[in-house]
């Protein structure tokens, strides 16, 4: 974790001891969120007799999968201290084109690589505009949020695309060893992302650039390359999510993924990522996504008003960031 203090105090051993003790007391925020999620699960298990049933758990596994994949992709730009606001629109555009290709009887095995290529191309455009043209990521991807949604409506005429082949059900409606296939796919994507961030040079460069882009550049990290790869990953995962949405909804829908970017950012932040860069884990993103899915599911099962659900989600984001800040302050105080 990049949560260790950036400077080491040069004082006597007492300071080192104090710092070590502060580190022992500082758990990553994911742990608190995980604990809270478990509490919510226990609470829902007590208050709703349907919550901890096999059917509901498998529902939730399918519900969380797509959100988590988008959040995993979103994490890469966030670690760089960037952001990608276009992921929801990219999911819609890639999804609708995927659906249109399938409706035109293109085989899935051809439509899939084409959609993946489109996702990578979009990521490349985002990355180049940010790194080469020097436009802030927020603006580039805000333009993408609007522009790619517009393209989605243009190519579809604003209409849903039906007539998907039944082979698509293999993804959305089957299970592998009792676990929904979508969840398995999400887990694979998550594990690969975790590996990249944790154990590869590329991953460590991401944290380095997010912590201090200038020093990263000075030690010889190819910032351009890492930036391009990160935005490509965000768009690629959005394209995965777009295709999975088509499979889950059994249609291409131009309204798909509206607001998904905010959901993804919220999941990453609740899972311990910092919008100032340098911090964030795949596990945290996953826990954040699970928590939001749980709240939605719990609200539905308990019949809590949809409007209260939004209020609760908002409070939760604020609370988590507050807890995280308190921790950082405490740590800084000790130092």
């Amino acid at each position: 974790m990049a949560s260790a203090p950036a400077t080491t105090p040069s004082g006597p051993a007492v300071a080192d001891e104090a710092q070590a003790s502060s580190l022992r007391h500082r758990l990553p925020v994911e742990i608190y969120v995980l604990g809270f999620t478990v509490l919510v699960w226990v609470g829902l298990g007590v208050f709703s007799r349907y919550f901890l049933t096999a059917g509901n758990i498998s529902n939730m596994m399918r519900q969380v999968s797509i959100d988590a994949i988008v959040a995993f992709g979103e994490l890469f730009p966030i670690i760089l201290a960037g952001i990608d606001l276009s992921v929801g629109s990219v999911a819609a555009l890639t999804g609708i084109l995927f659906a249109m290709m399938l409706a035109a009887h293109l085989p899935v095995l051809l439509a899939l690589p084409l959609t993946v290529a489109l996702g990578l191309l979009i990521g490349l455009i985002n990355g180049l505009a940010i790194d080469r043209l020097g436009i802030p990521a927020f603006i580039v991807t805000l333009a993408g949020l609007q522009g790619f949604r517009g393209l989605t409506y243009l190519v579809s005429g604003g209409m849903t695309v039906a007539g998907m082949p039944s082979s698509l059900d293999l993804v959305a409606r089957t299970s592998i060893a009792g676990i929904p296939t979508m969840f398995v796919l999400m887990a694979v994507i998550g594990l690969v992302s975790h590996f990249i961030l944790r154990y590869t040079r590329l991953g460590r460069y991401c944290y380095a650039i997010g912590s201090n882009a200038e020093s990263a550049r000075r030690v010889g990290i190819n910032v351009t390359q890492v930036t391009l790869v990160c935005y490509c990953i965000a768009a690629l995962f959005a394209a995965f999510a777009g295709m999975l949405l088509v499979s889950r909804l059994t249609m291409g829908n131009p309204n798909a993924g509206v607001g998904a970017e905010l959901q993804a950012i919220a999941a990453a932040v609740v899972g311990g990522a910092s919008l100032f860069g340098g911090r964030g884990t795949i596990l945290g993103c996953f826990i954040g996504s699970v928590l939001f899915t749980t709240i939605g599911n719990g609200a539905n099962l308990l019949g809590v008003s949809s409007f209260w659900q939004m209020v609760i989600e908002g409070l939760l984001i604020a609370l988590v960031v507050y807890v995280d800040n308190i921790q950082k302050k405490r740590q800084a105080g000790v130092r």
Binding site: S48, Y50, T53, G55, N56, N59, Q63, I66, L245, R248, L249, M251, N253, N255, A256, G257, V258, G259, G296, N297, N300, L301, G303, S305, S306, F307
Partner: peptide, 26 residues
């Protein structure tokens, strides 16, 4: 009437809400 959900014209949410309603009200 045992359940009422308000969506946001979001197709994925419409599906999720429907699934959860069916879970809660067998």
């Amino acid at each position: 009437i045992v359940a009422h959900r308000t969506g946001n014209n979001d197709p994925a949410r419409a599906l999720t809400d429907s699934e959860d309603i069916l879970t809660r009200n067998p």
